[in-house]
Structures are given as structure tokens and as C-alpha cells.
Simulated assay, not measured.
Amino acid sequence: MSPLPADRVQQHRPFKNCGVDYCGPFWTHYKIRGKRPHKVYLKVFCCFSTKAVHLEVVSDLTTQAFLAALKRFCGRRGLPAKIYSDNATNFVGAYNELSEVKEAIFAEEAQALIHKTCANLSIEFKFIPPRAPHFGGLWEASVKSAKHLLKRTLYTATLTHEELETIVIDIEAILNSRPLTSVSSSPRDLTALTPGHFLIGEPLTASPDIHQSRRRTGLLTRWKRIEQLRKEFWTRWSHEYLHELQNRSKWTRSCKTVKIGDLVIIKEDNIAPLNWPLGRIVAVHPGKDGEIRVAEIRTTSGNITRAIHRLAVLPINEKKEKTDL
């Protein structure tokens, strides 16, 4: 297991580095008799540092709707520096209901438009390797939580677009109020650090203080006070919560890895019986720690990129070497 990426452990403002994913579809109804319901989707943004969640209702899976939701997100959360997204093959393999995303967002023309728009906003847009959804496990967990809450809410409900928007924002508040770590070790302290602390400076469920001082304070003084509180939250985050993320529960030992020239079997989804996709590794992409986790394979239909857990190395070369000896 590799160390956490630098974007996960640095003290950035919320949503400076984030991941994005889709879930759905969901149905919205009109208050007009005989009018058919409309299919909508949910776009999920997850902050890398604080695990805060931002949810956007998207009317369709066109590139224009994707960019419109991105602009709404930037207008409320600020411009991110990096946005990570799944690859098209992850949607087709894991989300059958989102197969339309392949044509709407991951087509060459759509990707060019997305990259151009993000470049104009100084945003770096990155795609994780194909067939490797575990590379985006952080935002996949947020999608799972949002879908779980939505399905429980919408099980028998017929909602309008406005009602769905209200429920989605309520679910966003629920996810941003989940506890991350304890604020102090005192047995009498029942408060916990939440993503809401980094968004508004206190839990989203906190009651407004009616005993605030009536003394006038300038905007600059108030801004300095908010910055002081924010630094305290980041100090607690780095001293308590960050250490919990460093635990490695599996893949603690190195094993034999792939190398250029290896003949491999490629694990693909929905392959017909008696069909064994083969390829030859032509390039490897080591991580910052030197470990190889992604490789480029030459196949009969062209070069593809896959994570190494989708590859099975054939021991033909080893047998040949032993024979030569």
C-alpha cells in the first residue's frame, strides 16, 4: 500500500483538491397531470483534506451540464487546484446505469472541452487509470453514503425538482456533520471535529449563539478571529485525525512486480468464455515511492493502460530462463 498522496495530508482550504463522481439516475416529477417524470443525476464532489462533501443535481449527462455544475461548485466553494475523476471504463464496469457517461463526458471532444474550460480557470483535471476504481476510493465512499441516504429517502416518494434539491442539500449537511475525530481527550467533552468546522467554523447542527457580544468589531478583526479558529481546527486535524489515516491495514509487504516485456493476461469485464485477452507490457509508471502500480500494455487492438492488479503475469519467461541454465 502506497503512502497517502500529498493532496490528502496538506493543510489546504476545503475543496482545493477534490474528487468528482456521478450517481443515479433519480426521477423528478412535474405538477402537471400526464407529464412524464424526468431523469436526473447527482454529481458528488469530495474534499481530499477534510472529506467534506458537495452535492449537485444535474439534469442530464451532457458536457454542458457537467461544466454548469462545475461552475456552480466553484461559485460556492472556490476554485479548486486539482480535480480527480474516474475513467470511462470504470463507469461502464461498475455502473451500468451510467453507461451514457462514456459518450457524454469521456468522449474525445468532451474531454477536450472540459480540459480547456478547466485550464481557463487554472484547474488541473486528472483521470485515474482505467479499470481501477480503488484509486478513487475516497470519493467512491462519499457516493456510497449519498446513495444510501437517497435511496432510503426516495424509496416510495415522488418528488419535484425543488423537493429533490432540498433533500440533496439535507443529505449534504448530514455527511458534512459526521464526526472525524475527538476535539479533546476530556471525558466531559462530547464534541467532535467535523467537516462542517472547516466550512463554517462550527458544526452544521450547532444552535446559534444568542449571547453574542453587542460590541462593534471591524471586518478585519473578525476575519483575523476566523483565521485563528481555522488554524486551531487544522492543528487538531493534523495532530489527531491525520495520524489515523496513516495506518496500513493491508499490502504491507512488497511482492514481485511486473516489468517491461512481460506477457500478461488482462482481466476485463464481460469477456466471453474461452477468450483470454493477452498483452505485452511496453511501459511502466512507478509512483513517487518507486513502486509500480500502473502499466501500459500492447494488445492486438492497440495500447491500453491498466492497474497491475488487473494483470496476471504468465511465467513463460521464468521457465525459459531455467531451461537455458
Rank of each mutant, 00 (worst) to 15 (best):
N270M: 02
S182Y: 12
T62N: 08
Q228F: 13
P129L: 03
I271R: 00
A6H: 09
K71I: 10
T117W: 14
D86F: 11
K259V: 05
F125S: 10
P130I: 05
I32N: 11
F66P: 03
E291S: 14
L121E: 14
E140H: 02
K288V: 15
T252H: 07
E140N: 05
S145T: 12
G136K: 01
V168K: 02
T194P: 00
V58R: 03
G279S: 05
S184M: 09
D209N: 15
H243R: 13
E103D: 15
F91M: 11
I171P: 03
F66Q: 02
R76T: 04
E108A: 12
L199A: 05
C74G: 01
R36D: 14
A52P: 00
F125P: 12
K43T: 14
I266E: 06
L61C: 05
V284G: 02
E56L: 06
K151H: 08
V282R: 00
K144P: 06
V58H: 03
I260T: 06
A68D: 15
K43F: 15
R36M: 14
A192F: 12
K319F: 12
D60E: 12
K116R: 13
A104Q: 08
L242A: 10
R8P: 02
I169Q: 11
A110H: 06
P208N: 04
P195T: 00
P273W: 06
R131S: 04
G196M: 03
A173G: 04
I174G: 03
H285I: 11
A81H: 11
N87W: 03
F125M: 12
G75C: 12
V282T: 02
P129Q: 03
G261D: 02
T221L: 06
K126V: 15
R293K: 10
N176M: 02
K43R: 11
G287S: 15
A307N: 13
M1H: 06
D262T: 01
D86K: 08
S145R: 10
R236S: 13
H148L: 05
D189C: 06
E240G: 06
F66V: 07
D170N: 06
D86V: 05
Q10W: 07
V58C: 09
I292H: 08
G75S: 13
E172V: 00
E163A: 09
A94Y: 06
K31T: 10
V282A: 00
K288D: 15
P286D: 07
A307E: 12
N17I: 00
T305W: 07
A157Y: 00
K144V: 07
S185T: 13
N303F: 00
E165T: 14
F45C: 02
E109F: 05
A283G: 07
Q64L: 09
L175N: 00
D170W: 01
L263S: 01
S85R: 09
W251P: 00
R76K: 03
A88T: 08
G201L: 09
V168W: 04
N303W: 02
